[in-house]
Design a protein around this nucleic acid. Structure first.
Lengths: 149, 149
DNA sequence: TAGCTGGGTTGGGATTCACAACCTAGCACC
DNA sequence: GGTGCTAGGTTGTGAATCCCAACCCAGCTA
């Protein structure tokens, strides 16, 4: 398979088409924190307004965020951006990045975010498991390609 | 906490400092496929040579790849780039991106890569689990921040 | 000594990003 | 009914990145 074709078929490359531009994953991090309005993203990230508008539009276009009208009291209709089910599935990606950063680029001040089970408050982490639920260390996971390349 | 400080402390942002530039995660995808030489990355990705040189240097600098000398028969010493333990820990990130792409940006031709347990060949996937190994659906995982923001 | 090969480096044009200024709708106030 | 305020953008300009192509360089072979 030639590189162009493999890259087109590769799910990592296809995910990065949506997520790979600067600021996109940080915008989603904020979305998971409950930010939804243009100004909330702007204030919490310090991102340029034009880039933010552009990224929000892309994420809406790809079905990661939904643009919803809302109306505050005594205010005109405005819009907010909330995670769709596809967007909520990105939690795994963000946690994977967090865990790697915590482990390999740790700061003396310790991690700034932890992930817990909502009901129990117990910390959770990511693991590989087989179809029948048996955990498997990452070191014995390997890739199988659809076509020999 | 002001946005700049939070971003500096955030492990996602710190991971993206290393991984967030264009091509970086695709280079790592190839590294997990066993590619190690400059020309292997170049040929399998079609990336510009200067960008590739730049990304490899960055990944070496941050301890994700190790630059190692090798010598083919009747050839001078050259270099290859192999995953360090920190680099191998990025498998989780790549699998997370793969799973999201497979689910939400699927192609009719089906996924181009699957992940399996090396010994058994059984397919594996990522799950949230608690410290005592109990699997938890992503929908009930929530974030806890070190400081109120 | 001329050519080939792997592994880069360099220069110039095209994109993308960042920052600041501007726009716009509707509400509130006077 | 004009002025100002605010959320949510859009636009224009310069800076940084990215891409491509040409070049370099060291050591091997012929």
């Amino acid at each position: 398979m030639d590189p162009t074709e493999f890259n087109a078929r590769c799910s990592i490359a296809r995910s990065l088409d949506v997520l790979g531009e600067k600021w996109t994953l940080l915008i989603l991090r904020e979305a998971f924190r409950g930010r939804a309005r243009f100004s909330e993203f702007r204030d919490s990230l310090g991102v340029a307004r034009d880039i933010l508008a552009n990224r929000l539009a892309t994420l809406v276009e790809y079905g990661v965020l939904e643009k919803r009208a809302y109306r505050d009291e005594n205010a005109r209709e405005r819009f907010e951006y909330v995670l769709t089910p596809a967007g909520r599935d990105l939690r795994v990606v963000l946690v994977a990045l967090t865990e790697w950063g915590d482990r390999h680029r740790a700061l003396p001040t310790g991690p700034s975010v932890a992930y817990v089970e909502e009901a129990s408050g117990q910390p959770v982490h990511l693991e590989f498991v087989t179809a029948d639920g048996r955990p498997v260390p990452a070191s014995v996971v390997t890739s199988v390609f659809a076509d020999a390349v």
